[in-house]
C-alpha cells in the first residue's frame, strides 16, 4: 500500500482538461506511445474507456494490458488515478 506518487497527486489535483495520456499515473512515454497508436492520445479518451468499462477494475486493467501491454502495477496506478480523479470531479 505504498503512497501515491507525485504524478498521481498532480493529476488528481485539477481537472484533466486536455492533458496528454502520459499525464496519467503509471503511463510513461512507452505506454503513452502505444496508447496513442491505439487512438487513445488524450487522458479523457482513457477516462472514456474507464467509464465505458463501468469503472470495473478488472476489465480496465485487462484492457490496459491488452492495448498497451501495461504491467499490473502500471494498470493499477492508472486505474487508481482515474478512480480518484472521478471521485474528485465527477
Amino acid at each position: 500500500m505504498s503512497g501515491t506518487s507525485q504524478k498521481h497527486r498532480n493529476f488528481v489535483a485539477e481537472p484533466m482538461g486536455n492533458k496528454s495520456v502520459t499525464e496519467l499515473a503509471g503511463i510513461g512515454e512507452t505506454l503513452g506511445g502505444r496508447l496513442k497508436d491505439a487512438g487513445f492520445d488524450m487522458a479523457y479518451t482513457v477516462l472514456g474507456q474507464y467509464l465505458v468499462l463501468k469503472k470495473d477494475e478488472e476489465l480496465f486493467k485487462d484492457w490496459m494490458k491488452e492495448v498497451c501491454h501495461a504491467s499490473s502495477k502500471q494498470a493499477s496506478d492508472c486505474y487508481n488515478c482515474l478512480n480518484d480523479w472521478c471521485e474528485e470531479f465527477l
Binding site: 491505439a38 474507456q49 465505458v52 463501468k54 476489465l59 484492457w63 491488452e66
Partner: peptide
C-alpha cells in the same frame, strides 16, 4: 458479467 457496452476497443476484453 456486468453489461459493459461492447465496442471495438472493449470487444476483446469482453
Amino acid at each position: 458479467l456486468p453489461g459493459v457496452p461492447v465496442t471495438d476497443s472493449t470487444r476483446s476484453v469482453i
